[in-house]
Design a protein around this nucleic acid. Sequence first.
DNA 1: GCTTATGGTTTACGGCGTAAGCTTAGTTCA
DNA 2: TGAACTAAGCTTACGCCGTAAACCATAAGC
Lengths: 219, 219
Amino acid sequence: MNATGEVREPLNRTRVLRAAVSLADDAGIESLSMRKLGHILGVEAMSLYRHVANKDDILDGMVGLVMTEIELPAATEPWGQAVRRSAISAHEALLRHPWACSLMMMVPIGRAARAARTRYMDALLASLRRAGLTPDLTYRAYHVLDSHVLGFTLWQIGHQFASEGDVSVAANFVEELPSDQYPDLALHIEQHGQPGHDDEFEFGLDLVIDGLTRMMEGQ
Amino acid sequence: MNATGEVREPLNRTRVLRAAVSLADDAGIESLSMRKLGHILGVEAMSLYRHVANKDDILDGMVGLVMTEIELPAATEPWGQAVRRSAISAHEALLRHPWACSLMMMVPIGRAARAARTRYMDALLASLRRAGLTPDLTYRAYHVLDSHVLGFTLWQIGHQFASEGDVSVAANFVEELPSDQYPDLALHIEQHGQPGHDDEFEFGLDLVIDGLTRMMEGQ
DNA sequence: GCTTATGGTTTACGGCGTAAGCTTAGTTCA
DNA sequence: TGAACTAAGCTTACGCCGTAAACCATAAGC
């Protein structure tokens, strides 16, 4: 801490995690290695272990960071709107960090991710209970909602990856496709490029929320 | 091909792929390496490259194998039933091979997986069109259905992994949880152990199919 | 002024995917 | 029959990875 500022101030866990997130955002999760991460932070790989238990700990922390970007359903809104807004926020956060979906499912969950997930789950469950869903319906509704967010986002990420490649995979796909043999598939692929299909996530979400509403009112 | 049978017959692509699948089933996808796979087949790692382009090719082939286990929706059944049956079959296939979901989303899709996927997608799309859904609704319905299958199955796999560990993660979770602070979450976790919650997949599936039915009849 | 954390470094180990070249056995054809 | 060719597997080697273990420099506390 001398006046000239030549002395770099020491690393800390959150700086490591933030660097890891932006490296993964930029270059893809598969190119996140301890050595590269260290290099970015101007430090040798092994130095990172002073601030982080191991690589899984980093991945766990990254998931935790992403989850805190998700807006929780507010108690002040009608439940449908609140849940909808939160799901859309989750969708957006996961799209901002395309590696997060897969990480969430593959890394053994650790402290950091658990804390964030706890907050999120409890808030969503509380919204559903407040809305008057029975405990049973709440249980199921939670899983359906989360499945949609996760599943849809994963599909979407898979697609945009596929559309990036040098020669787009979609183009390859359609090219090699005997389109008279698979007419429905050919149409579907064509629809992918078209405008007016950018609200599919919300389409599915509303399908679910409306269904839940009906079940709730039905009994 | 002598009579004594001492000469092992040569490897081939499908034997490599099948060995890879069962290794991944037994020991987890993360412990599938060329060296281990070779060892299982009584061969050095590099020998595999005579039958397979590289590791990604193996992963692609594995995904292809899993996808062919999925029962396609039949044209002879009412569309709702046909789609339902196929989705359940997909769910079961993905549960049998817990690594398949993540692979499907992460490995750049290659020939083997593409062929299987083409069959599956076209069959499902054809079912929806035959049912009378508009092209637009078909497009959306496809994504919602697939999102549910993929997303729900991933959640389920994540959970059963979590419940396996030495000291179950769920137990840890609930133990460290200040359950007066997160009452709804505590209840939800409790519900997970209870019987009568083994049809959630179908609950969500029916929610979607019923919603689609209503939209179809509505216009 | 000696001790003791703290934070960063060096070296090393075993595992990974795979490129390049080698060996061996079987097949084809002169 | 023998020579050329081919198919299938093997050996070696390279550069990456995560991380254990030991080492070094600086700063703080007594």
